[in-house]
Amino acid sequence: MHDTELRGPLPRRMWRQLLDGITPWGSIDIRPVRWGGTCYRLVLYPPGITHAERRRVRLWRGWPMWGAGLWLLILMVLARTTDPWTALGWATAGYLAAGAAAYVWAGDIRGRVRTAEVHVLASKNDVPTLIRSRVIRSLGTTMARADEQLAAGEIRSADYEATWWRVYDRLTPGVFEAGIR
C-alpha cells in the first residue's frame, strides 16, 4: 500500500484495504487448522494488473462471503414485506445475480490468478507435503521482502515487477508440482 493511501479518515483507509488488499501481488496465508495442522496458501495476481483489475478479481474471489451477506440482507428486508418463500426466492436470485455480475466483471484475469495451497498435518511426516509448504512459505517471503525493499527504496519498480514475475512463473501449474518432486 502506498504512503498516500495510508492517510485520510480511517473508514476510507479500511475500505481501500478491503478493496485493494494489503499487497498488490496477492497474499500469503499461514493458519492453524483442526487437529493441530497448518494450512499454507499463496495467492498471486498476474504481474502488471491495474488497481481496478485487482479490485474486480478480489470482488469475484470474495463473492461467497459478501454474497452471503447480501443474501441475508435481502432476506431480512423482504421478509418484513412479503411471504417467506418469495423473500427467499428474491434473496437467492440477488445472490446468484451478484455472483454472475462479479464473474463477468472480473473477466479473463480471474483465470490467471495462481493459487497454491497445502495442509500439513502435525502427526504426518509426508515429505512432499512438507516441501510444498516450505516452497509456498519461501515464495511468499520473497514477495514480502520485495515489498519491504520497494518501500525502503532499495529496489526499483522494475526490479520489484521482475521478482513478481519470477514468483508468478514458479507457480505455473505443472511447474510448481514438478519442481517439488
Rank of each mutant, 00 (worst) to 15 (best):
G48D: 13
G48C: 13
I49S: 11
I49D: 06
T50W: 14
T50F: 09
T50P: 10
H51D: 15
E53W: 01
R54S: 07
R55D: 10
R55H: 07
R55Y: 04
R56H: 12
R56E: 13
V57M: 11
V57P: 08
R58N: 14
W60C: 11
R61P: 04
R61D: 06
W63T: 07
P64L: 02
P64K: 05
M65D: 04
M65G: 08
G67R: 06
G67M: 04
G69M: 08
L70S: 05
W71M: 02
L72I: 15
I74K: 02
L75N: 12
L75G: 10
L75R: 13
L75A: 13
L75W: 14
M76K: 09
V77C: 10
R80N: 10
P84S: 07
L88E: 05
L88K: 01
G89L: 11
G89S: 11
A93Q: 00
G94E: 04
G94D: 07
Y95Q: 01
Y95D: 04
A97R: 09
A98W: 03
G99P: 05
A101L: 15
A102G: 03
Y103F: 11
Y103H: 15
Y103N: 14
W105D: 14
A106I: 02
I109V: 01
R110W: 03
R110F: 00
G111R: 01
V113L: 03
R114P: 05
R114N: 00
T115M: 09
T115D: 05
T115I: 14
T115P: 04
V118A: 11
V118R: 11
V118I: 15
H119E: 12
H119C: 09
A122N: 12
A122K: 11
K124L: 14
N125C: 03
V127K: 12
V127H: 07
V127Q: 14
R132Q: 15
R132A: 15
R134D: 12
R134L: 07
R137V: 01
S138R: 14
G140D: 01
T142Y: 00
T142M: 06
M143A: 07
M143N: 06
R145L: 13
R145Q: 15
A146M: 09
E148F: 04
E148S: 15
L150V: 01
A151I: 08
A151K: 11
A152Y: 03
G153C: 00
E154N: 10
I155G: 04
R156F: 01
R156G: 06
S157W: 05
A158Q: 10
D159C: 03
E161I: 08
E161W: 03
E161A: 08
E161T: 12
W164Q: 09
W164K: 02
W165G: 00
R166A: 14
V167F: 03
V167N: 02
Y168M: 03
D169Y: 05
R170A: 08
P173W: 01
G174F: 04
E177C: 06
A178E: 09
G179E: 07
